[in-house]
Amino acid sequence: MSKTAGNARRKFWFDPRFAIGLVLVVVAVGGVYLIVSAADRTTAVFTARSALAVGDRVEASDLVPTQVRLGGTGDLYVTPDRLPDGGLIVTRTIAAGELVPASAVGRATGTEVTSVVVELTSALAANIGPGSVVDVWSARKTDQSTFGPPTVLVDRAAVVRLVEPTGLVAGGGIRSLEILVPKGSVAAVLESIANRDAVAVVPVNEPLEK
């Protein structure tokens, strides 16, 4: 009888090492599942339906929601829940099919930027074009032939377009630009234009060639 009881006790004996191994397997499987689930997680982000130029106003119909894997970079792009009711204004050229960066657009309403055409008194750098970001420098006119020291009139203004010369000055090259200026700087820009100050632009960035 004692032999039978001893066999029963040995039958239900449990090795702790087996339990530890089982827990490690479960943890490993769970970790792999979480990693795979995180890798498969996508976010709806807007892409441009067609090429968008600086100064364009865009609404939801101009954009295409696209599911992409962004990881921790979701805040860098425009998502459907971040699109304001008044739409957006483009401040940097966006190619067709490109994800729309939050840094390349601004609110279309409010008091942010407006477009102004400035006439330059110096030649335009060859690497400046639509989508370029420039600093606008101005030297105040002191008399008919002299100017004061130049200062930055507007920093980091986006170029909307190059204004082609017409008439008698057509052969002199491009000397005017349409730029996006913060509305708080418009008065200073218009004053400089009215005073016929010397105005020049210096590129801050250079668009990549395609």
Results as ranks from 00 to 15, higher is better:
183 K>M: 14
134 V>H: 12
194 A>Q: 05
130 P>A: 03
14 F>Q: 01
108 A>S: 12
40 D>C: 01
189 V>R: 08
123 A>R: 06
24 L>E: 01
80 P>H: 13
54 V>F: 10
126 A>Y: 10
50 S>P: 00
22 L>N: 00
41 R>V: 09
119 E>I: 07
94 I>F: 09
23 V>I: 13
33 Y>Q: 11
131 G>N: 12
2 S>N: 04
14 F>E: 06
153 L>N: 15
155 D>G: 15
175 R>E: 13
49 R>N: 10
110 G>W: 12
110 G>S: 13
181 V>Y: 14
24 L>A: 14
150 P>Q: 11
34 L>P: 00
179 I>D: 05
4 T>G: 07
145 S>P: 06
71 G>N: 07
7 N>G: 00
129 G>D: 11
70 L>T: 06
54 V>C: 11
38 A>N: 08
28 A>V: 03
122 S>L: 01
13 W>K: 02
21 G>I: 13
75 D>F: 09
30 G>Q: 02
107 R>V: 03
166 T>N: 15
52 L>P: 02
50 S>D: 12
54 V>D: 06
157 A>V: 13
23 V>M: 06
23 V>G: 05
90 V>N: 07
21 G>R: 09
192 S>W: 03
191 E>H: 08
169 V>E: 15
12 F>P: 00
49 R>Y: 03
23 V>S: 12
85 D>L: 12
176 S>L: 09
181 V>D: 14
22 L>V: 12
98 E>Y: 08
34 L>R: 01
2 S>W: 02
54 V>N: 09
11 K>M: 10
175 R>Y: 11
84 P>W: 14
155 D>V: 11
71 G>F: 04
127 N>C: 02
165 P>A: 07
84 P>T: 13
144 Q>W: 06
43 T>G: 05
15 D>P: 02
35 I>P: 00
201 V>R: 04
160 V>E: 09
114 T>P: 02
2 S>G: 04
96 A>P: 07
124 L>S: 06
198 A>W: 13
194 A>G: 03
63 L>K: 02
72 G>N: 09
60 A>M: 08
72 G>F: 04
125 A>D: 14
179 I>V: 15
92 R>L: 07
185 S>W: 10
183 K>R: 12
102 A>H: 04
31 G>P: 00
37 S>Y: 00
87 G>V: 11
102 A>M: 11
129 G>V: 06
149 P>T: 14
46 F>A: 05
96 A>M: 02
195 N>H: 09
129 G>Y: 05
152 V>E: 12
100 V>S: 05
126 A>P: 11
105 V>L: 00
130 P>N: 05
124 L>V: 10
195 N>D: 14
17 R>Y: 02
96 A>W: 08
141 K>Q: 10
165 P>C: 08
28 A>G: 05
201 V>Q: 07
28 A>H: 03
158 A>Y: 14
45 V>F: 12
27 V>H: 00
171 G>F: 15
47 T>R: 04
32 V>D: 03
98 E>R: 14
55 G>Y: 01
12 F>W: 07
131 G>R: 05
73 T>C: 02
197 D>N: 06
48 A>I: 04
71 G>K: 01
193 I>N: 04
182 P>F: 13
65 P>K: 08
205 N>I: 14
1 M>V: 11
154 V>P: 15
193 I>R: 01
154 V>H: 13
44 A>Y: 09
33 Y>P: 00
24 L>W: 02
109 T>M: 08
